[in-house]
Design a protein around this nucleic acid. Structure first.
Length: 437
RNA sequence: GACCCUGUCGUCUAGCCUGGUCCAGGACAAGAGCUUUUCAAGCUCUCGACACGGGUUCAAAUCCCGUCAGGGUCACCA
């Protein structure tokens, strides 16, 4: 039975790299019909925070990775102590006293060659002669990372350790511990790191690092997972859009790349749009509701759900991030719209009072105010005036939405409604009597 | 510095194991155009890479060696 684990430390939020490690562990477990175990590495009592534990669990659930078992290292201190005593008794570890009289348990490292067979990288050889003796139990009584990690992985029967590249140099230290404790070795697989656009480690300077930041920005978990999946793995055949469940069937850990990948927000945006355009608008509405309420665009419990749903459908195919809807569709929710000055200068500097007035009149005449009739009324007017459609379409869009870009004009007019269209256009109609001086 | 990992378009990658079908394919980005309603959507096209140097071979992105470059790790952090 395959058993893998994801072991974050609650000293910060779940970040992109952690999410990717969780993804590959989860995928591997699913593809092997194994178990996915979560372990919270909270041995550092000063830096570990409950809020981070909560955040990590939340983000993991948001991504859709359900764990089969959950362990906290802080609850297993007696196990580490027990195994440390065992090593002390067998002479493979010794006690070192600090000047203050506190005792630490140190592992004696023997010079030897350590060979590790990595599922992704192949054979890696280390010279233990270069590794100094390792602290097992610190003088404050807490275990060190490598020791707790080995004890937990062995006691919870982890068969495959899939983790970031940055742990390669921990591997020989852990292998020696496995041997000293008489545990059988698990398989190792080291994933390449994810780099920021600057070539260095992904950091806050190069962009958001926390999974929850991406949630807040309006990325869908499916899109984020698909993007992360492609960052160091490919099913070949030029396939890119792959959901979690398809990936389970296609995934083979041996095909994971060895090269570090750069996180490219542009491609994530594209990926997110791919999922957004096919998403169920009902779900998108649920996600957007809090934001729209917060902006006071709608009032909780007393808004027209079907109407907002229609607006989402109008925009979803062109959004890179779901949250962009809030700004892009703002003119549907505000009485006084903000007009982009450059757009106004370009399309509304010329007086179009006559055209606007005629168009309003045509709209008034419509007995059935629907998209089709609105367009027909517009086309008829334009041909009657003998002008090009676009010479009127652009000014109308700016006057109605404040923007030069957006959905089709006739849909906009339909969803704005006759009254609002009239009011907004009236602002650009110069009164003839006051204009005569 | 020592040790370890890695090196295909700006970015993600296919191809590399099992040399020839690759003057290297796809995607994102960028640029150009089309869409007689915009683009941030859609469609079309263009630009653009085998790190370098030696081998081996009839033939190398693919195998071998070296160089260089990038990254990671060297804590009583995890």
């Amino acid at each position: 039975m395959v058993r893998v684990r994801f072991a974050p430390s609650p000293t910060g939020n779940l970040h992109i790299g952690g999410g990717r490690t969780a993804l590959f562990n989860w995928l591997f477990a699913q593809s092997q019909n194994g178990k996915f175990i979560l372990r919270i590495e909270d041995t550092d009592q000063l830096r570990s925070k409950q809020e981070f534990v909560d955040e990590i669990l939340f983000s993991l659930k948001w991504l859709g990775f359900q764990w089969d078992e959950l362990y906290y290292q802080s609850q297993r201190f007696q196990r580490y102590r027990m195994h440390a005593d065992k090593l002390l008794k067998s002479g493979q570890a010794y006690i070192e006293k600090s000047p203050e009289g506190k005792e630490a348990v140190i592992f004696k490292v023997n010079a030897q060659k350590i060979r590790v067979s990595d599922l992704i990288r192949g054979e890696i050889e280390f010279d233990a002669g270069l590794i100094k003796d390792q602290v097992l139990i610190k003088s404050d009584g807490t275990p060190t990372y490598n020791f707790a990690c080995v004890v937990d992985d062995a006691e919870t029967n982890i068969t495959h350790i899939i983790r970031g590249d940055d742990h390669i140099s921990n591997t020989p230290k852990q292998v020696m511990l496995y041997q000293a404790l008489g545990f059988s070795l698990p398989n190792f697989a080291h994933l390449p790191l994810i780099m920021g656009m600057d070539g260095g480690r992904l950091s806050k300077r190069t962009g958001a690092t926390a999974i929850s930041d991406y949630r807040r920005m309006g990325y869908l978990p499916e899109a984020l997972i698909n993007y992360l999946l492609l960052l160091s793995w490919s099913p070949g055949e030029n396939r890119e859009i792959i959901n979690k469940h398809e990936a389970i069937g296609l995934f083979d850990i041996k095909n994971v790349n060895k090269t570090a990948a750069t996180f490219d927000l542009k491609k994530l945006d594209w990926m997110n749009n791919q999922y957004l355009k096919n998403a169920d608008p009902q779900n998108l509405l649920e996600e957007l509701l809090p934001l729209l309420i917060e902006k006071k665009y709608i009032a909780e419990g007393e808004f027209d759900r079907a109407y907002v749903l229609d607006l989402i459908k109008l925009f979803q195919a062109r959004l890179p991030r779901l949250n962009d809807f809030v700004d892009w569709a703002d003119f549907f929710f505000m009485e006084e719209i903000k007009i982009d000055p450059a757009a106004q200068e370009k399309f509304l500097s010329k007086d179009l009072s006559g055209e606007f007035r005629l168009f309003i009149a045509e709209l008034e005449k419509l007995s059935n105010f629907n998209v089709e009739n609105i367009e027909k009324a517009f086309r008829d007017l334009v041909s009657k005036l003998n002008i090009e459609a676009k010479t009127l379409i652009h000014p109308l869009r700016v006057a109605l939405t404040g923007k030069t870009i957006g959905p089709g004009l006739f849909e906009i007019i339909y969803y704005l409604g006759r009254e609002r269209v009239k009011n907004r256009l009236s602002k650009f109609i110069v009164d003839e009597r006051s204009n005569n001086g």
